[in-house]
């Protein structure tokens, strides 16, 4: 049974999330503010944390930063809309994904499932996302068992997205992983390569979704 920790100052929200998640077999812990949340996280070692960004006393970002000093537990951000810059900051501070309030239960559960999936390990030299298969050994990509010709940059890019399949990756994160050590602004290059990748993958493969002002998400199975 997975353990989930809910850090939200709204009691009603916590109660509802508890009901929703308990019905899916989660064991729930709650905290009403940041410091309590950190204590609970240390004490109960949850498998996933739902963190509200608008907390009193200690901001959600601060909680996340302190949590990341000692834990890599998956964190799902709960936020209200119009906080794009805060969302980006949270993602770059180590949050795994976010849902925007008001959210549907289905969306929440889907995001939780995706971020709890074992993070990609190097023991298996291939990544499969829907009909797309990446062979990391030979740097080859195939769609429906047919090979897709990708340039090295495109391969690096789709690899980053596929490793995070179903999860949002910010532009900065992508640029850091695909063009390591480069100082220049690569956002234009990123767009161009995404454009090429979309054309090569086409409509039958997993779609690369842009979230304006934030980054990209490669649709994983079961979505869209």
């Amino acid at each position: 049974m997975s353990k989930a920790l809910i850090i939200d100052d709204e009691q009603q929200m916590r109660r509802l999330l508890r009901m929703v998640l308990e019905s899916r077999g989660y064991e729930i812990y709650e905290a009403a503010d940041g410091p309590l949340g950190l204590q609970e996280a240390a004490f109960h070692r949850p498998d996933v944390i739902l963190l509200d960004l608008g907390l009193p006393s200690m901001s959600g970002i601060e909680v996340l930063k302190r949590l990341r000093e000692w834990s890599d537990v998956p964190v799902l951000i709960l936020s209200v809309r119009d906080q794009e810059n805060v969302k980006v900051e949270a993602l770059e501070c180590g949050a795994d994904d976010y849902v925007t309030k008001p959210f549907g239960t289905a969306e929440l559960l889907a995001r939780l499932t995706v971020i709890q999936r074992r993070r990609f390990t190097r023991q298996n030299p291939e990544i499969i996302v829907g009909k797309l298969r990446l062979d990391l050994l030979h740097h080859e990509a195939s769609l429906n068992a047919e090979q897709v010709k990708l340039t090295p940059t495109e391969f690096a890019l789709i690899k980053v997205l596929a490793e995070h399949a179903g999860r949002i990756v910010t532009q900065n994160q992508i640029v850091r992983l695909v063009w390591p050590g480069q100082q220049t602004d690569q956002s234009e290059g990123l767009r161009v390569h995404i454009n090429h990748l979309r054309k090569k993958i086409g409509a039958s493969g997993p779609q690369i979704i842009n979230e304006p002002g934030i980054g990209y998400r490669l649709e994983s199975e079961g979505e869209g």
Partner: peptide, 21 residues
């Protein structure tokens, strides 16, 4: 603006989640 936004949207979010149940 942020706090009004938070105050108004929280009940709406709660209703939405409750309805899903």
């Amino acid at each position: 603006l942020d706090s009004i936004s938070h105050e108004l949207k929280t009940p709406i979010a709660i209703i939405r989640t409750a309805l899903d149940g």
